[in-house]
Nucleic acid binder design. Sequence first.
RNA 1: GGCAGCGUAGCUCAGGGGUUAGAGCAACCGGCUCAUAAUCGGUAGGUCGUUGGUUCGAAUCCAACCGCUGCUACCA
Length: 559
Amino acid sequence: MAETHDPRRILVAVGWPYANGSLHLGHIAGAYLPADIFARYHRLAGNDVLMVSGSDQHGTPVTVRADNEGRTPQEVVDQFHPEFLRYWQELGISFDLFTTTGTKNHEEVVHDFFMTLLRKGHVYKGTTQQFFDRQAGRFLPDRYVEGTCPNCGYEKARGDQCDNCGRTLDPDQLIDPRSRISGATPEMRPTEHFFFRLSAFGPRLLEWLRSRHGWRKHVQNYSIAWAEEGLLDRAITRDMEWGVSIPVEDLGPGKRIYVWFEAFIGYVSAAKEWAQLRGEPDAWKRWWEDPAAETYYFVGKDNIFFHALFWPAVLMGYEGLNLPTNVPANQYVTFKGEKASKSEGVGDSVLSYLERYQPDMIRYGLAANFPETSDTDMTEAEMIRRNNDELVATWGNLVNRVLAMTGKNFDGVVPQPGPLDPRDERILARSQSMLAEVASQIESVHLKAALGTAMSVAQEANAYLNETEPWKTAKTDRERTGTSLYVALCVINALKVALYPYLPFSSRQIHEYLGLDGPIEDAGWSADRLAPGAKLAAAQPLFKKIDVTDGEGDARLSA
RNA sequence: GGCAGCGUAGCUCAGGGGUUAGAGCAACCGGCUCAUAAUCGGUAGGUCGUUGGUUCGAAUCCAACCGCUGCUACCA
């Protein structure tokens, strides 16, 4: 009997999506699906997983959309937060809690961070000069200022960047600056804000980053390079009305905590909220305060700065909470070579895919092409191709042909195997070593490779059947036929486990077809030999082949 | 402009100082017919972005250049 270990505690923290628009498949492939695969594996392996995220309801993007549509920011949030919940439900993204940054709990946790950092001297008050629009009566974020680019002369350059020459700018560099709200000429006014002393954490961050092992090089190198250049203190408050309040009165009205300072604190507040909902208010500490716990942050590559530098520095300053174990940021999925983007409308929303395809098909198509090391190009035609050639043909068909033959020849009962020959032993051994290999690949967040490992065993199982030809031996040697089908069923049972993190809906189905007791979620990351004589359930094909000639399929992603 | 990642077969991607560079798909040939016309085997296909350097040896390390992507601190 294996000795019992205390389960590992794994915090799966997933980037907070802005509640300002629908998500597209790039978001799913970049963060939510890899996080879910990782979480499902660890749960099945018997570890204590806490997977949290939520809607980021603050920030300029939400207010911009609200302004444009004549709605309140809250109305925008109330539209998109439920939509996100629907994605998770239908795609099987298994959050333990998906909350929002609009809760009382979140505000309290943010205040605690703010006050603690203030008390320890990591947050201080400072004054900056910023453009103020008299007509609108408000300070202007950099991109709300427009003017002539000092570099190329383009007349509609924004205060943060010139779209014509690509140069990054400070708003006071603009010639003839104008407010994009009122068109008035803005004036520079001093404004007080709180700053986080990020500069003070540079050396510690560098030492910490250099000592990380197993991080993706685009994450680690990038972060180290940035820390070596020198980190500047960052304002953590903004001149706006929409956001988490500041817990001290010093600045007067019209100021809020900067959205990005509070969003990542959401990882802590979500864990606390989860614990409260569970009736064990201290349970969150098992992931955050025990140094043995592991914390993984699944985000897109545009978030590396915040998760590998800013957030760790905040945690160092706060003291007592775990630093990230890894930040396996994905690169981007491009659609026909173009970056998927909410604002540019490239890449259809997730809902349009859910209307047309099974969730496991979407999950497979994305996971087989995760942008783990570099940007990855994807088309809907390619997803359909993978569905038809790989998911249906290799895996679904393996299950179907074996279950059908067992039904026909053994009345849907797990056959009694005869003596195992070397071919039988080899494929059975491979199915076991595959489970260990996939586990190791998932733990090191090589999710695409792990899926490939499992699929190659499905192919080996098909080859095994072609070698042993149970449909032929059925006419001459019942025992040999039973052995072949028994072995194949055992291999399918192992593959069902290995593929569960990727294809939870169909693996659950297979678990039922195999007539096993209890939910697959309780079955563990292991596959025992099946019991001869057990009754199999009537099976249907797991995946639908998609007809590309029906006009639905081609190149919708290029939109 | 600066920084980072990437550039490998027709397509999508692995690999990464050491014998003849890999996978899937597409192409071609063959076997099988239990299975969703699905499976399995084989063949063919690459001067590993360009140029130069280090090395006994470079796709791999270095430099320059070209191209793509991202970041560049007030989009997040």
